[in-house]
Design a protein around this nucleic acid. Structure first.
Lengths: 135, 135
DNA sequence: TCTTGACCTTGCAGTAACTTTAAGGTTTAT
DNA sequence: ATAAACCTTAAAGTTACTGCAAGGTCAAGA
């Protein structure tokens, strides 16, 4: 099957599939007479796996590791689970950071009149917090 | 004051301060005899403002807009508030995406034995979801 | 047969916000 | 004198693509 079919099935843009090939995440055969990529079922399986890992929040390097595990019959589920738990804790940390930002933004917005006047709580707070008061 | 002082007060790495200068977010004077940057109080104020905006989750382009507002005596707080509300809604969306990932990861981890065996719920799920079952 | 449109190829530039590296000049303290 | 700690620039690397240009190929219709 050619790239547009593989892209459609996996849910990845064709450009992205080419990019994945360029970094060695997939290696489709080539058709001799025109140089078009030819994707086998297992190539498409890899792409689907990658798409799913991406949706789940894994980076491409993490996905590469998962893919190696996917294709390694001697893997230990221990090992896979550890990758997921590590990812989970990084994700929790990231969520906490965003929640902190959300809190700050929400407080800023609440304190601001939002009218025609220049006086603005938001601007004042951004200016006053942090390294303010240095002389 | 020289760059390391300005960096310390603002809480930004010196390299980042140089980068901010290169994209026009700050324009410190230069000392004639050695070419070192010389930061005034208002330069440092800008850096602190930028640091704070960054911590609050604004991109550099958004920060540039906020900085213009910060220095514009004719601003309307309406305008500033709208920027913050827009940011807030993008942030909420981002948090939701991360929570969805968190949920998926957490379910994956729960279903996995995490032992010495190759059979792994996580791998199976990543392989089966998405574009699976194409023939 | 010709043409039109949809497909495929490559390579290169651009994105965000830095970080790292290299190579070298200046200042300060001993 | 010299070493440590500061400063400078320019260029490359990072992540995961996206967009563009120039051109080859293929399938269908007139």
């Amino acid at each position: 099957m050619n790239i547009s079919q593989a892209a459609k099935i996996s849910g990845l843009p064709a450009q992205t599939v080419r990019y994945y090939e360029s970094i060695g995440l997939v290696s489709p055969a080539r058709m001799a007479h025109n140089g078009y990529r030819s994707f086998s079922k297992s190539d498409v399986d890899r792409l689907c796996f990658l798409k799913q890992a991406k949706t789940t929040g894994f980076s491409l390097e993490e996905s590469r590791d998962l893919l190696a595990l996917y294709e390694n019959a001697d893997r230990r589920s221990q090992h896979v689970k550890q990758l997921v738990l590590d990812k989970l804790s990084r994700l929790d940390q990231q969520i906490e950071e965003l929640m902190a930002m959300r809190q700050t933004l929400s407080e800023l917005a609440e304190g601001c009149q939002g009218d025609e006047q220049p006086n603005c709580h938001i601007i004042n707070q951004l200016a006053e917090q942090g390294g303010a008061g240095h002389e």
